[in-house]
Design a protein around this nucleic acid. Structure first.
Length: 491
RNA sequence: GCCCCCAUCGUCUAGUGGCCUAGGAUAUCGCGUUCUCAGCGCGAAGACCGGGGUUCGAGUCCCCGUGGGGGUACCA
């Protein structure tokens, strides 16, 4: 029989990277073993759940490329079943009614120095007796239903932690149905997982101590107990549970920052798992082939943005220019920029046939995210440079504005006549530098600042070729004006 | 408080008693390539939480401690 796994997010927020990683592990397992991934929305917390969140979660899954085979199901659709199962346990004597007020119960437990209120609840139920209990219920008195946890021990063989064993005396009689008739999480999960025929429950290890309770429920209900595997949680850089204050935690945030889904998937897979060899950059298929629960880490992992960035750069660099162009478009649009429909400069190396392709070929090796590509593309796409980077101005212009202006003037004259190709431009510039008896850098750096507004860019001659003669000359004029306004500092 | 989980470079990790003078990646630093940035190449620095055992031999097994995390809800 093939395996059936599930991913059950609650729609109380966006798809969190921790949730995404859990989803990924389930997905990898399902895909590797020809199994089924069931998606279930755990929306029983009506207060905090919303349809918008459900949509966001589904979008997040799709963005990551994690498809599911069944669902989405909604937990709320099962409440009748949950209720009947709780009632059945009551009938069978495996659960009992709790008529107490929770606060009052807690107070008594505390006053008597009893570890857990459920001890008092059970005591009262036993004192009441079955007949009396039923009578009060029939009289309309509200009650919660608690599972009567039997004596003994509860154990299972966890896929990542191995043999796990809990003393039942440490497990309290948990409420499974509230006084208002709504089911409690642990019951709902067990009921739904059984309903969906889940064979392997792969989830965060924050559920480790829920597991014995759930196993007890499976057993009480006479349902087959699935295999459990508890994967480590993802922590923030301070070692605390990953949360909003660590920055972006929703996968949608990363989509927006220009992280590639393949990179995200690769990164997430490597958080708490590794293939056992030294591979790091792995395709989806690589991951599917190599994944195994035995190699899942027990230790929680810190979400390291730097490494995500590096991995993303790996994927970015492997993108064809047309793919990157397609991804870049919305980010350019967000900046009010558009790519000109022009052919690549003549003789341009690389696969790019279009000017835009030539541009991104230059930028992708220098960027870690698509957003960074957009950011670096800006000087090439604006009409004129309005901002000159302060640091670069201080370094390349302000020290000797007059001399710089003169050199830029000389460059202008050169550029008017030279053939507009990389080698010719470079030869011309270097010859000019010799004539002026300065190092080439004395021309290149002020020139870069003039044409890009920045202290760094791709190679200056490639930049010039892409920019074209006309724009270059205009920018040199504008730079000259800017230079004229700079204060002349005494030497 | 009680129950449970976890513990190798800053971070992700390899490591299942001798292959470990602890390997890789990332991040950091240096050198090289060079017009800057990035990239690339080379190199440096950087860890077995502490203490007891077991063993001829322990990062690896056991115990205790410490630290971190989770649970302990009529939350999910």
């Amino acid at each position: 029989m093939s395996i059936r796994v599930r991913f059950p997010p609650s729609p109380t927020g966006y798809l969190h990277v921790g949730g995404a990683r859990t989803a990924l592990f389930n997905w990898l397992l399902a895909r590797q073993r020809g199994g089924v991934l069931v998606l279930r929305i755990e929306d029983t917390d009506r207060e905090r759940s919303s349809e918008a969140h459900t949509r966001a979660i589904l979008e997040g899954m799709s963005w990551l490329g994690l498809d599911w085979d069944e669902g989405p199901f909604f937990q709320s659709d099962g409440v009748e079943r949950h209720r009947l199962q709780a009632l059945r346990l009551l009938e069978e004597g495996k659960a009992y009614r709790d008529f107490s007020d929770p606060a009052e119960l807690r107070a008594e437990a505390e006053a008597r120095g009893i570890g857990h209120p459920s001890v008092v609840a059970r005591e009262r139920a036993d004192a009441l007796g079955i007949e009396e209990s039923r009578a009060r219920a029939e009289a309309g008195e509200p009650f919660a239903i608690r599972l009567r946890v039997p004596e003994g021990t509860t154990s299972w063989d966890d896929l990542v932690h191995g043999e796990m064993r809990f003393q039942n005396q440490d497990i309290d009689d948990l409420v499974i149905l509230r006084a208002d008739g709504s089911p409690i999480y642990n019951l709902a999960v067990v009921s739904d997982d059984a309903e969906h025929g889940i064979t392997h429950v792969i989830r965060g290890d924050d559920h480790l101590s829920n597991t014995p309770k759930q196993i007890l429920l499976y057993e009480a209900l006479g349902l087959p107990v699935p295999v459990f595997g508890h994967v480590p949680m993802i922590l923030g850089s301070d070692g605390k549970r990953l949360s909003k204050r660590h920055g972006a935690t929703a996968v949608g945030d990363y989509a927006q920052e220009g992280i590639l889904p393949d990179a995200m998937v690769n990164f997430l897979a490597l958080l708490g798992w590794n293939p056992g060899d030294e591979r790091e950059v792995m395709s989806r298929q690589d991951l599917i082939d190599a994944f195994s629960m035995e190699r899942v880490q027990k230790k929680s992992a810190v979400f390291d943005l730097e490494k995500l960035g590096w991995l993303n750069a790996q994927y970015l660099g492997r993108l064809s220019s047309s793919e990157l162009l397609r991804l870049l478009e919305p980010h350019l649009e967000a900046r009010g920029l558009t790519l000109p429909e022009a052919p690549a400069p003549e003789g341009w190396a690389g696969e790019a046939g279009a000017w835009g392709g030539a541009l991104v070929d230059l930028l992708k090796v220098r960027a870690r995210t698509v957003v960074e590509v957009a950011e670096q593309a800006e000087p090439f796409l604006v009409d004129r440079i309005s901002d000159f980077e302060d640091k670069a101005v201080a370094k390349h212009w302000s020290r000797e504005p007059a001399a710089v202006a003169e050199r830029l003037g000389a460059l202008s004259r050169l550029f008017e006549g030279v053939e507009w190709r990389e080698t010719e431009l470079e030869n011309g510039l270097r010859t000019l530098a010799d004539e002026l008896e300065v190092g080439a850098g004395k021309l290149i750096h002020p020139l870069r600042l003039a044409v890009t507004g920045r202290g760094s860019s791709p190679g200056i001659f490639e930049v010039l070729v892409l920019l074209g003669r006309e724009k270059t000359l205009k920018r040199l004029v504008a730079a000259g004006e800017h230079l004229a306004r700079l204060p002349r500092k005494p030497a």
